[in-house]
Write a protein that binds this DNA or RNA. Structure first.
Lengths: 221, 221, 221, 221
DNA sequence: AATGAATGAGTTTTCATTCAT
DNA sequence: TATGAATGAAAACTCATTCAT
């Protein structure tokens, strides 16, 4: 759990007011997230973060310590934002197969709507995971989603639709794989293959990926 | 000794010795590939490239021009090496389903054996593809593989095993997705999920991914 | 002590002390002027400019941008300083011929007292004028002097001493020519001719040049 | 006197043939002259000199030693070329005043036709004359011209046209001043004054300068 | 006589970080 | 809480010069 930041609710979301520690911190974080995700760790500029946040560099150092710490905070923030998004997913009312389909499509859309998530993961993996390795509660981060998925798998198996022995984490990694790659690698794919990777293509791909996952789960009749 | 033009053939091609332009260029390229793929574009150091190549910085600038150009050359080299590896894949003798399985497993292994490929793609995509977009023959690069895949799909359909209308490029992107993600994201996955992503896990995952692809292709009986 | 805004007025303007942006800028400019005028553009070292200014290189880049911009600022400063000097010239009380003589002698002395002016002009002309060409108000710079000269010429003509139709700009270029060359080319002249080009020689030459100009202007009787 | 270079007359002036020491030396010198006069000493590139000469850098070092020596040779070459040009001037047949006028106009044209002369002098003076100071026969260089001028002055005086006591060197420096400055400073003059300094302007200025010199010499009636 | 290959020692420029208020 | 001024250390890039043939 992140330490409870008593953000003055009134201030939140607006352009950060001066003399407002919590707001400034938030603002720096958001700016850092954009900077690191568009330029990578080494390519990111503290100057740029300060400028975008509308605050001074010394303040950033006061709050975070050094570039590494800013990056670590931004990475954590990325995960928190993604997890917050995932909380909105509700698969309860749906039949198991439909629930899986909706999870796949949701994941694809989620990645598309929050492109800095993928960029931050790329960056962190390029760096060998040296930062996330030291993040305390990293392993709690997606547990809710995994639980939801486990429930659906159980339900599907109980209904006789899904095979047994499917591990939700393993399955989730499949789903993430299918959704992550075409977004993460959109630029190289566009250059290497003729196919147009645009919004429509990604929409279709979400459906097709859902198909693939469902076929994989189905009990063979 | 005067005009002895017999360049010692044994020396050529391998560890490049001094006063050998082609060898030096090769050596720089290899060094650049390592540097860029382990540190990303902005994190890479020309100094380091020179040191690893056992040559001086000015020579690098003489041969390539500037950091951008070194990077571009290394990116292209990456693709060339990967394509060369793909030429070794032979699916001709196998039944369609086996051929597909072998392609998936091969792809997974190929990515594992050439980790700089994935790192370079990550780097390039983080940079928005600005370099590969200007690479002349980028789109020829994987055409052989796609042709092989098309043949297998046709064969599978002819034999009544595979569904019709599967586009080989689209399918290849599925296969790449499944193989790319767990390798590319190994560090973040390790931190977020408890599962051990080690060699054995990746071996199993290759098989499982092959399963998924094959089920996706199969005509439903 | 808390909000004491009384910047010690005594400190301001002269040898710039730390934490004084305007003073630092000034100091860099002065240092750049010395460096560029003694070494030329390509020979000048930003390092040296910093050292002489007692400030760090990054600050120079912060204030000016790059070497070209430092040079441009120094060139403009050169002209401003020269113009400021020219404002002190007063020819009003003198008879026309005396006024001209005093202008010639003043010009010679002015060039001698501000040797970096000639060096900067030489440097800029060697560079093909690429910097001054883009200087906004370059053509306003010597207009005051030209006006003064025009008045004297008119006066001299009205008094029946000077010929008509003398253009002040053209005449000024004659005067500048006579004063510029022996100072600008002092080193080559010393080597090529035996004559000693020293202070006394330049004093005499100022008088002689004044003579030449006056004879040129005189109405032939 | 320069050491008699036995240039194979047949080779001279053409594109330098390989395996031809004298031709190569000549070719490097010409190239150096262009490079140093257009870029100044520090801005000149040995690489560029080699490229323009169509020869390799090591050859240049073999022939000249180092950059300083190339520069020194180019500077001396400049003077030699200028002196060679001055030999063509013939004032013998003309009345004294006409002879002076023709010398002024000739000087102006000579400077215009050989722009690298002025650039080299500028460069050398910017460097404080450190090279020409060590040139052995520098003071012989313009002696012929001075002698010619002395003759004309004597003749003019004998004819009762010119004043007595005019030193030819001093006069020559006046003439050079008038011709040098508007060519040397063409770029800054163009920017600072509105007047168009073009070929026509320089033609007129030659005449006007001749006027000024003649008026200066004339015995006042 | 001539050169392609190579480099040590700079030079400009950048950037994370701190000082002083 | 907040910042304008400043910098040490390092990065990319250059250039006169030499090596080996």
């Amino acid at each position: 759990m992140a330490k409870a930041k008593t953000t003055h609710e009134a201030d939140r979301g607006k352009t950060p007011r001066k003399r407002n520690a919590a707001g400034s911190r938030e603002s720096i974080l958001q700016s850092a997230l954009i900077e690191f995700s568009t330029k990578g760790y080494a390519g990111a500029r503290v100057d740029e973060i300060a400028k975008r946040a509308g605050l001074s560099k010394p303040l950033i150092y006061e709050y975070f310590g050094d570039k590494d710490a800013i990056y670590a905070a931004a990475l954590r923030e990325t995960y928190l934002q993604i997890r917050a998004g995932e909380q909105t997913l509700n698969m309860d009312g749906l039949p198991a197969e439909e629930a899986i389909r909706s999870l796949v499509v949701f994941t694809m859309d989620h990645f598309r709507r929050n492109p800095w998530f993928i960029s931050m993961l790329n960056t962190e993996n390029l760096r060998g995971g040296s930062t996330i390795r030291h993040m305390q509660d990293a392993n709690e981060i997606q547990s809710t989603l995994i639980e939801k998925l486990r429930n659906v798998l159980d339900r599907g198996h109980a209904e006789g639709r899904f095979r047994a022995g499917i591990d939700p984490v393993e399955l989730y990694i499949f789903i993430a794989s299918l959704c992550y790659f075409p977004i993460s690698n959109v630029h190289t794919l566009r250059s290497v293959f003729e196919c147009k990777i645009d919004d429509a293509w990604l929409d279709r791909r979400g459906q097709e990926a859902a198909d693939m996952v469902v076929r994989y789960l189905r009990k063979e009749s």
